[in-house]
């Protein structure tokens, strides 16, 4: 059975249609890349999967592990194992990374009927996970994303992902704004977290990230629809030829990112 099944998904924001019938099947163990020009609806698809309240689904369905994802609140999706790495991670002054992560970890465990981890046990777990992003423990006492550089914020997203161990990770433009070293750390992190029972969806504008995280399937989203799917070679072709040859027929709504 597929892990994520998106069928004929239509979604709008402020009554403006952005997704116009997206269908997508992601199986456990797979890495999918969703590429496309600016305004094609990539980020919207990521946000609709994560449960952003501003996006209204007007038609279609999304199931995760056989369950209706659209019927769940954002936190219920997280409890079920969905994770979105944000393009623009949100700053939360006054809440330390350590406290935030432990609360998230324990909320998810509680929802699954498991015992909460006390601060000491959680710290042991954290020490292991920090290695994934090559960070020392001092970052845990900083407020969540507050005063972080762009690269640090993206690394922090990967750290959260490492701690929360989602079954479906959607990474929204995680590569944007990263220098090559940070990109490698992020990619290594994602690769290290791959498991046979989980899947990763990479939303990206550029091929660059796919040099480090090898996708099983590449989709091109344009005008709110998937206009082409293929294997890794599609990404390389896009790198050479751009998006024009695929999108000339698709209506791209203006002003949508």
């Amino acid at each position: 059975m597929s892990l994520l099944q998106v069928t004929n998904l239509h979604a709008s924001v402020d009554e403006k249609p952005i997704l116009n019938g997206v269908s997508l099947t992601v199986n456990a163990g797979e890495v999918h890349a969703i590429m496309g020009p600016n305004g094609s609806g990539k980020s919207t698809l990521a946000q609709v999967i994560a449960g952003h309240p501003a996006y209204e689904v007007t038609a279609g369905s999304v199931t995760f592990d056989g369950k209706d994802l659209l019927d769940m609140e954002a936190e219920e999706r997280a409890w079920a194992g969905v994770f979105l790495a944000f393009q623009y991670p949100v700053e939360i002054p006054g809440v330390t990374n350590a406290y935030f992560l432990r609360t998230a970890y324990n909320e998810i465990r509680k929802a699954r009927g498991l015992d909460e981890l006390d601060p000491i046990d959680f710290y042991d777990l954290l020490e292991e996970k920090l290695k994934v992003v090559a960070w020392g423990p001092e970052v845990m006492e900083r407020a969540v994303n507050f005063g972080f550089s762009g690269g640090e914020k993206k690394r922090n997203e990967i750290l959260q992902m490492a701690v929360l161990e989602p079954r479906l990770a959607v990474l929204d433009e995680t590569d944007s704004g990263l220098d090559i070293d940070a990109l490698r750390i992020v990619a290594d992190g994602v690769n290290a977290l791959k498991r046979p029972d989980s899947a990763t969806v990479l939303v990206t504008h550029y091929q660059r990230l796919l040099d480090y995280i090898i996708p099983d399937v590449v989709h091109v989203l344009a005008g709110g629809k998937i206009v082409r799917s293929g294997d890794r070679s599609l990404a390389l072709e896009l790198e050479k030829r751009g998006y024009e040859w695929l999108t000339s027929g698709a209506a791209v709504p203006a002003g949508v990112s």
């Binding site: 994560a50 449960g51 952003h52 309240p53 609140e73 954002a74 936190e75 219920e76 999706r77 997280a78 409890w79 994770f83 979105l84 944000f86 991670p89 949100v90 939360i92 935030f100 609360t103 998230a104 909320e107 998810i108 929802a111 959260q160 929360l164």
Partner: peptide, 9 residues
């Protein structure tokens, strides 16, 4: 919303 996506609702 950010917290909700981390399971904190």
């Amino acid at each position: 919303y950010y917290m909700a996506t981390r399971g904190i609702g």
